[in-house]
């Protein structure tokens, strides 16, 4: 039987959740035995090669490309897991939801104290994904099957979640592993 495939992505996140995944230490070897990594920054595969059993989503949606990737994950994965506070609640990037987008861009590219931008131009190359009005948690964009909070979730939390999912059982975490920080 071929190994189940797993895909991961970092949308509007900081890669901290991926770092936490690597924090499972030598259990990464056991994981490599259990699964085949498909699209993921861990192996740098840019697109899906086959349908996946599990997709891990780090980060919420801040721009059009995040939405595109998230929808693609929903299509290609049997079970989609939101990992971390950014995917589940917006997280730190969602702090910008409290400030109008125009003001954020002006602060970043024009008015900020450390900005040198004599032309005062705000980047608008069509190659750059369009920013959304707000940062959205993943479940406000597509259906998400499981939510794992934490900033980041601990390596133990991710390990327990993955082994439960791959073992076909429901994900149950002990009290100490549910954390919003």
């Amino acid at each position: 039987m071929s190994k189940p495939r797993i895909a991961t992505t970092s949308l509007c996140g900081c890669f901290g959740c991926h770092m936490s995944l690597l924090d499972i230490d030598e259990r990464i070897l056991a994981l490599a035995e259990l699964v085949e990594f498909d699209k993921s920054p861990i192996n740098d595969h840019k697109d899906f090669t086959a349908r996946c059993a599990v997709g891990l989503i780090e980060g919420g949606c801040a721009n059009a490309e995040n939405v595109h990737v998230l929808r693609r994950f929903r299509e290609q994965c049997d079970v989609l897991v939101s990992v971390g506070d950014c995917a589940t609640m917006g997280g730190i990037p969602a702090l910008r939801n409290l400030v109008p987008l125009e003001e954020c861009l002006r602060e970043a590219y024009v008015d900020g104290p450390s900005v040198f931008n004599p032309g005062g131009r705000i980047p608008d190359d069509p190659e750059i994904p369009m920013l959304l009005d707000k940062v959205y948690p993943a479940q406000e964009v597509v259906r998400i099957d499981y939510h794992i909070p934490g900033c980041p979730p601990s390596a133990d939390t991710l390990w327990k979640t993955l082994t439960a999912l791959l073992g076909g059982t429901s994900v149950e975490l002990p009290y100490e592993l549910i954390k919003y920080d």
């Binding site: 994900v171 149950e172 975490l173 002990p174 009290y175 549910i178």
Partner: peptide, 20 residues
Amino acid sequence: VPIGGAPVVPEAPVAEEGRA
């Protein structure tokens, strides 16, 4: 330690199926 002391079920199912 949970607020209010140990809950009745020690292992709580936290990652419930999404409802959205």
